[in-house]
Nucleic acid binder design. Structure first.
Lengths: 376, 376
DNA sequence: TTTTAGCACTCATATTAATTGAGTGCTAAA
DNA sequence: TTTAGCACTCAATTAATATGAGTGCTAAAA
């Protein structure tokens, strides 16, 4: 006769089974049988007992059956449970950390390179798709504005933000303005625009047209042109690398799935939108209220120990094309302000522990790098 | 008794058979049988006779057998023969021409947009991958140089080329230079650099360091920085669109092939090199000697009626990953100088006639567009 | 009450065999 | 030179069979 199990012990057992099952499935890619759990885990139970536990997990939709005579596979909900409370967070292998660190210390010199390199490193270590998104430029704060005549009726506009990014474009003007005149116009403009985000600046430029006084005709014409151009640059930039890694995954045999996937990678706009959502969910400066309001129907996306890393599993994100994938993201900062999102996109069946560690570590590196090169 | 065929008549018959075979194969994607050629072509011959002709074509490696009991399929050599002398060049459908033209007339406003839009149009009409490559920036001729102080020891360098492209970057300086000082330095620099290609300019900047006289210390330090930066921008830029179209092609079932292919698209550098080769083969200003020297082992790459469009079929290009694809390219010009390459990348089994027409037409559009917006 | 051994049942997967038919190559007659 | 006729080949399809991994259930053991 065996003493009765209390509720907690039952739950504990379920969790251990799930944990082992996820590990095993991630390792092998094949549905996991009761027998293999009984043998390899240290529960000291027979396959039949394990089957009983599995039955309950299946009833709760935490694992599933591909077909009658197959083992079990975790569902999205199962992965979620694993990530939320069963994962044993690990650090990256020392050699990997060293490798990454040396990339940032030695290879990357310029602030312009950090984005492309980061997505490359992410993809090369994860073997999935790595990406880095810069914030919408329009959220940046303007700090310099220069107008330089180049040739007939053409003016080069150079804008520099506080974070050190620069954007430039050429506009056509109606009048032929001298270098000196342009300089003083720029001075007037920057006086009223400095410290504004680009978005605000754009608004102001457009408004200034309407309230333009006679003497500022010239300025207003220029302002209009510049205001229009800013829109063009308002898109976020998305760097991606390793998209082809997805192709070699055994998880994707279905061709139409693949096609969907690549369409996404080409339509960067779509992924940008998705990431922008992650961005706005960033804990940094968001009031908790708004956040909980928006997300209340979604399960928690926080792993215990690394609160900054978001994990979205399969159908948890609403975009159809991503429902067989998992998205691991985090934000990065510049002088305490969140300025972008980075992460990886891979199959649901991935080593979450390692990938979370990777994304976390890389974001630290990026933060440090930006800190060091901050020009302010 | 039937009269003997002379040599010419035999050749003529071979060609007709090949032509029909290519059409049919491109249309259906299945190996073409002697019977279907006999029935549908207007040669009035029996399958047996056709088989005789096919036997000879096979001996010459113009067609091949996937296996004993299958019909024939053109080889690379067969496609080459078709493209060189059997193709009946057609124009695009009127509605397609109209659509394209209206894109260039209405949708594309800025010279910066023309490249992305062009690759998009190419891919959307061909259903393959469209691309546009800008020339190496370093070949461009410098026309303006501006140095603008932004913050402490940071200088924005703006370079404008004769073709109207602008490149900008920020450099760090040792000294704090005033706006006026920078302006006069820029004046000195541009005086000696104007009219040079960027490559030459870079060289000159580096040299000037060595010969630097005492009074020009400041300049030489700046020149060094600028010279180094120019290297970074010397890469050609490559715009690509529709890579995912390739996935939906029935021609690619093999996964490893696909993987290779996408690696190429990611490693833009590789494709850039390939296209740079096409670029340097451009007939525009190349002395015939050099060209024939380089290409003498390769078959002619000219279709009769559109001498500017290059066609590379399968193994004709040396890059392994492209050996199951065909590359159709042409160059585009600005004020009579070839400045870039554009085209499509698709399966060997494609409608060459239409694709050649497409690439040709698009390049005309681009030429016209650039002409119209030329600022010189 | 919990665990487990035992066994029947299911169903994906692999293997083998048999069939089909499209298309060829060859030959001999027209 | 052309073609009808025919044997032959071989990919592709279909069917039949076997295998076995893994489950669900039950009844006995702990």
């Amino acid at each position: 006769m065996v003493r009765a199990l209390n509720f907690d012990e039952q739950e504990q057992r379920k969790k251990k089974v799930l944990q082992f099952l996820v590990h095993e499935y991630v390792r092998t890619g094949k549905p996991v049988a009761s027998k293999s759990i009984a043998q390899s885990s240290r529960l000291g139970l027979s396959p039949a007992s394990i089957r009983h536990v599995l039955f309950e997990l299946e009833r709760d939709e935490i694992v599933m059956h591909p077909h009658t005579s197959a083992g079990r596979v975790p569902t999205d909900k199962g992965y979620r449970m694993y990530v939320d409370s069963l994962i044993d967070l690990q650090r990256l292998a020392v050699q990997e950390e060293t490798r990454i660190r040396s990339e940032y210390d030695r290879r990357i010199r310029e602030i312009e390179d950090v984005l492309t390199h980061t997505s490359r490193i992410l993809s090369s270590i994860s073997h999935y798709t790595g990406f880095v998104m810069t914030p919408k430029f329009e959220r940046n704060i303007l700090s310099h504005l220069e107008l330089i005549p180049i040739g007939e009726r053409r003016v080069l506009v150079a804008m520099i933000t506080e974070s050190g990014l620069s954007k430039n474009f050429v506009i056509n003007t109606q009048l032929n303005l001298s270098r000196e005149r342009l300089y003083s116009i720029a001075k007037i403009m920057i006086a009223s625009l400095k410290g504004l985000t680009l978005q605000e600046a754009q608004l102001k430029l457009v408004q200034s047209i309407e309230s333009a006084e006679q003497e500022y005709r010239e300025i207003s014409s220029l302002a209009k042109e510049i205001g229009q151009e800013i829109r063009k640059f308002s898109d976020s930039e998305l760097y991606m690398d390793g998209a082809s890694n997805i192709l070699s995954l055994p998880d994707f045999t279905n061709t139409t799935e693949l096609h969907d996937l690549f369409r996404i990678m080409e339509e960067k706009q779509l992924l940008t939108n998705i990431l922008t959502d992650e961005f706005s969910d960033a804990p940094a400066n968001a009031e908790p209220k708004k956040q909980s309001k928006k997300k209340e129907h979604l399960p928690s996306t926080r792993a215990q120990a690394t609160p900054h890393v978001h994990v979205r599993i399969g159908a948890e994100h609403p975009v159809k094309e991503l429902q067989n994938l998992s998205l691991i993201t985090t934000t990065y900062k510049l002088s305490d302000q969140t300025v972008g999102v980075l992460g990886i996109l891979g199959p649901k069946r991935m080593e979450y522990s390692k990938m979370i560690a990777l994304v976390d570590y890389i974001s630290q590196m990026v933060n440090q790098f930006l800190e060091k090169h901050d020009s302010k």
